[in-house]
């Protein structure tokens, strides 16, 4: 445990970074300054570990249900999985008016995966990091992947790639460029202006997707950490903190699924727009 509140907070907001330090070679960063010095060629081990764990958990559970999927009377797990699938399918059908077998599974993956990653926030902020540090192997351990902008941008980049891919696939390379050049003002004089506007709009999509999710999760996490600070400040403050922790966790019953849902819906909307030929 760090000494001052500032250090405590900073500690909780730092990722476990593995990378090539300019002076010390390949290593796990022991201080945040070292992590910063590693630059781009480093990875956040905790972010990747937990996001992959959650993704595997999602696929494991759903695959298990899929293996035993029957058209007869469904069991509990199948019921749950079908509920998710039906919910996502409904959203896709409502929003996406075309035929693309990728969209629905993509939306399902986004929704459940982000939900699971977000839901790690319900675990009290000290439990797993303390456990990990108790092993003596690591100095930092941040378990909620969506509070790491790398994770959210990683997701939104995937979506961005799909937007570009389907825009070009549906409209053709030339058609896509034409669309960028001639909307919203359909005149050749406005081509530079249109291009500026449309490319800006295009770039805004992944950035807003990633920042929205990251911002919500990060802010929530900071509040959880602030609340956790009270546990070290005597009985009264500790009890107060417990109450606040509970209230904040209940509030996240709303925030966590909502952010997952928004990310999914916006992805569907963006891809739907990419499929529309003007």
């Amino acid at each position: 445990m760090a000494d001052t509140p500032v250090e405590y907070i900073q500690h909780h907001l730092s990722n476990l970074t593995f990378g090539k330090h300019p002076e010390m070679g390949w290593m796990l960063a022991e201080k945040s300054s070292q992590a910063a010095e590693m630059g781009f060629w480093a990875i956040h081990v905790d972010t990747l570990l937990w996001s992959v764990l959650m993704g595997v958990l999602f696929l494991f559970v759903f695959k298990k249900a899929a293996n035993k999927a029957t058209a007869g009377v469904p069991g509990g797990l199948q019921n749950f999985v079908e509920m998710c699938v039906e919910f996502v399918e409904g959203m896709v059908k409502e929003t996406f008016h075309g035929k693309n077998p990728v969209i629905a599974p993509l939306a399902l993956t986004i929704f459940v995966w982000i939900f699971l990653m977000n839901s790690l926030k319900w675990l009290p902020v000290d439990w797993i990091p303390e456990l990990a540090m108790a092993t003596g192997l690591v100095n930092y351990f941040k378990i909620v992947p969506t509070t790491d902008p790398n994770a959210t941008f990683g997701l939104s980049l995937g979506v961005f790639f799909l937007i570009i891919f389907y825009s070009i696939k549906v409209k053709g390379g030339l058609g896509f460029i034409k669309e960028l050049s001639f909307t919203p003002f359909n005149h050749w004089i406005f081509i530079p202006f249109n291009l500026f506007l449309e490319i800006l709009g295009l770039l805004t999509k992944p950035i807003s997707l990633a920042l929205r999710l990251f911002g919500n999760m990060y802010a929530g996490e900071v509040v959880f950490i602030l609340i956790a600070l009270t546990f070290g400040a005597g009985w009264i403050m500790g009890l107060l903190g417990l109450g606040m922790q509970w209230i904040w966790a209940v509030f996240h019953l709303l925030v966590i699924p909502l952010q997952a849902f928004i990310f999914m819906v916006l992805t569907i909307v963006y891809l739907s727009a990419a499929h529309e030929d003007h």
Partner: peptide, 13 residues
Amino acid sequence: NMNLTILGQSIAF
């Protein structure tokens, strides 16, 4: 820090 994690995440995705 923005780093290689972003690519790792995209690949996992």
